[in-house]
């Protein structure tokens, strides 16, 4: 296969996954959340149990008026949704789906790259918050910045623990080095990573920056139409990315029966299972107050992540 064709196939595959998997997760959220609340959720769009609801939503968003407030900082305001969306697309490039190089872009420093790119999300939140010229947006954005900067630390520390255990920063390398007893050994790190990942994508119960009962819709207050849809899409891609990273780092990615052929299936199944947990947490728990949010981060997650690092180092040296 010539190089350009190879590149094209990989990029198209990632873009397709970027467009399809978040919609599946979104539809799953509609349905799971509805049934957890003793409702049915969408039932009409598309005929069969409302399977086309998100497609219909997309069409609706495209038709809506695209408003930029008069006092807004126009270029920054218009750029922010793309900045929110783009990092997740780039992250998907580095996620290994199966063994034997079934990954869009194998990188030696994959973990490092992924965590660095995820950090760009803060910039998007601050951009949209400041450029909206709206006090609710600004409050939401500052809350978001405080939250994202705080939770970045346990996220990176727990990921570092896995990297230390595997002895590599490459994501396929980490999955290859994974063995089932890591589930026990790295359990605290997995928990810390998952929780701080939830906070990174600002999902309930960590949706203080959005907090619709007090801040209208946080930093997304002034957005309409397609740009708003991009923010929503970014949220669902965020779920996929966090679920995929948790899968790859802590749940053994493609490990399962017959990984050589069915590896991709195990990875996808684990990603959807973790996404289900993300939705489940949203339905079950109320929003954390701002002080509880920071307390959980600095007094629980960071110490646990540090202790896990020590534990990982001790076990690694002892073996």
């Amino acid at each position: 296969m010539p190089l350009w064709l190879d590149l094209l196939v990989r990029v198209v595959a990632v873009v397709a996954a970027f467009l399809v998997v978040p919609l599946v997760v979104g539809q799953m959220e509609h349905k799971v959340m509805a049934h957890m609340q003793s409702r049915l959720g969408p039932m009409y769009a598309g005929g069969f149990h409302g399977w086309a609801q998100l497609v219909a939503d997309g069409v609706k968003f495209v038709q809506k008026e695209d408003i930029t407030p008069r006092d807004a900082d126009r270029p920054v305001f218009r750029l922010a949704p793309l900045v929110a969306l783009f990092p997740y697309l780039v992250v998907l490039l580095a996620i290994p789906l199966g063994p034997g190089g079934l990954v869009a872009q194998p990188m030696d420093v994959g973990l490092f790259f992924v965590l660095a790119v995820l950090g760009v999300g803060v910039v998007a939140v601050l951009m949209s918050a400041w450029a909206s010229a709206n006090k609710y947006s600004l409050l939401g954005g500052l809350r978001g910045a405080a939250q994202l900067l705080g939770y970045e630390l346990p996220l990176v520390l727990s990921a570092a623990s896995v990297a230390m255990a595997a002895g590599t920063l490459s994501l396929p390398g980490i999955v290859a080095a994974w063995s089932p007893w890591w589930l026990l050994w790295q359990a605290p790190a997995a928990l810390v990573f998952f929780v701080s990942g939830l906070a990174e994508i600002r999902r309930p119960p960590f949706d203080m920056p959005i907090a619709d009962s007090e801040l209208v819709f946080g930093y997304m207050t002034e957005y309409t139409g397609l740009r708003f849809a991009f923010f929503l899409l970014a949220e669902y891609v965020g779920i996929v990315v966090i679920a995929a990273l948790t899968t790859v780092l802590f749940l053994g990615g493609w490990h399962g029966p017959d990984p050589a052929h069915l590896g991709w299936l195990w990875t996808l199944a684990k990603v959807f299972a973790v996404s289900f947990v993300v939705i489940w947490l949203r339905v079950s728990y109320p929003r954390l107050r701002e002080d509880q949010l920071q307390r959980l981060c600095w007094l629980v997650l960071v110490p646990v992540a540090l202790a896990q690092l020590v534990l990982t180092a001790v076990v690694k040296l002892a073996l």
Partner: peptide, 13 residues
């Protein structure tokens, strides 16, 4: 929430 999900929903269509 998990228990509610496994039960029939109360919606009347």
């Amino acid at each position: 929430t998990l228990k509610t999900m496994t039960r029939r929903s109360g919606t009347q269509q």
